[in-house]
Computed example of a mutant assay.
Amino acid sequence: MTFFSPSYCPNSESRHLQTALQFPDVFKPRQEESHKGTFGTLAVIGGTSGMSGAVVLAATAAMYTGCGKTWAAFNQPQLPFAVIPERPEVMLATAETLIRRNDIDAYVVGCGLGLDTQTEHLLSALLTAARGKPLLLDADALTLLAKPSAIRQQAAEHGKLILTPHPSEAARLLGISTEAVQSGREHAVQTISHTFNAVTVLKGSRSLVAAPEQPLYTNTSGNAGLATAGSGDVLSGIIGSLLAQGIPLLQAAQAGVWLHGAAADLLRDNGIGEAGMLAGEIAPAARWLRNRLIHSSI
């Protein structure tokens, strides 16, 4: 089934993400009287059997980016481990347990989530549980969203939605080929944004960020070192962390994409080459960079 609408006319205005000065809410000093509740609670939900690492990467990235509290929720009947090694700060739960909590400020859903029928029901329930709160859908959640089902309408009506597809996921959302997406990336990302009333990040070299009735932004940070397993999970964790901290949707997506790429540039320029850069190395670099930029703004 094709969802792509050639008749949709996207916003032709285009800008670039190229400096931290574009994200004033992200790079401002913290108040001395702050506490962990000040910086929000994020739920990262995914990690079906064999894919636990995706949730670990995203949740860890959220903590490194300044989230007050982070839950890693696994789409498994039992927790795969009692604590994340070397990251006991991250709280653990099964997805079915966490969905009943009412103290979550923002959600990241999809990292290694799975694609079976039961998971489709879980995604529908999560869309209901997250109503009125910022929600980022990535990876397997996007594949489920591409199916002609009620989930598409649920997502389109959410109102505080961020989608982060890579080209093949964008192609499934639009019902066209990956080659068609890549040959018309600007039209594709803006059409997805329009269709789902969502801020949309089309990942890849020079990632694009679109939002309804807003100019299109092209990211200028990043390098080929980001072409590694788990890099997208880290990006989702960074953006989700900013959402939980109260950063508005569009600025959270833009700043997250830029910071993710700038952290990779920092690694490349300081002795870690593009070949063999690990996703788990990106978040600590993003923490260092964010704090340095905050300090420089004081």
Rank of each mutant, 00 (worst) to 15 (best):
N75I: 06
S183K: 15
Q118D: 14
T60Y: 09
T164Y: 03
H158C: 06
H16C: 03
D233E: 08
H166G: 06
L21P: 01
R292P: 00
L267M: 09
R292G: 05
D265A: 01
S12G: 08
T200F: 08
Q153Y: 03
L137F: 09
S52N: 15
V109R: 06
H16S: 05
H295R: 06
M91A: 11
E13W: 11
V234A: 12
P77S: 14
G273V: 05
S177E: 12
H166S: 07
T200D: 01
S168E: 14
T128A: 14
G204Q: 08
A58N: 02
T94F: 04
M277L: 15
L226I: 09
I298Q: 07
G68V: 11
H295A: 12
L115F: 09
T228S: 14
I239Q: 03
I298N: 05
D233S: 13
E33V: 13
N223T: 04
L137E: 04
S177P: 08
A180R: 15
I192E: 08
V55R: 07
R100E: 10
V234K: 07
R30I: 01
A283G: 12
T178C: 13
H121N: 10
T38A: 13
C111Q: 09
S183P: 06
T195H: 07
E179L: 15
G237Q: 14
G40N: 02
I104M: 00
G232Y: 05
R87Q: 15
A150D: 15
G50M: 09
L173S: 01
P85G: 08
V108P: 04
V55D: 13
V209L: 02
A129D: 02
A262T: 02
E33H: 15
L122A: 04
L289C: 01
L266D: 00
V56T: 15
A171R: 10
V199Y: 07
L79Y: 07
V181Q: 03
A130M: 02
L289I: 01
S221Q: 03
V26A: 01
S241A: 06
A73R: 14
L79R: 12
A283K: 06
I239C: 01
I176Y: 02
A285H: 02
A82C: 09
L289R: 05
P24C: 01
L136T: 06
S14N: 12
F39C: 08
G246W: 03
Q245Y: 05
Q245N: 07
R131D: 00
S5I: 09
D25M: 00
N291A: 00
H194S: 14
D140Y: 14
I247W: 00
Q31M: 12
A275E: 10
Q245H: 02
L113I: 13
P215A: 09
L142Y: 10
G204N: 08
P284S: 02
R30C: 06
E281P: 02
A156N: 10
V181P: 07
Q76V: 11
L115E: 13
L123K: 05
Q153S: 15
P148Y: 14
L226R: 09
K203E: 02
A283Q: 11
A262N: 01
S193C: 15
A20C: 08
A62N: 05
R292A: 02
A82N: 14
G225A: 08
T218I: 07
Q118G: 11
G132M: 02
L163M: 12
V257N: 03
R131K: 15
A171V: 07
P167Q: 09
T178D: 10
R101F: 10
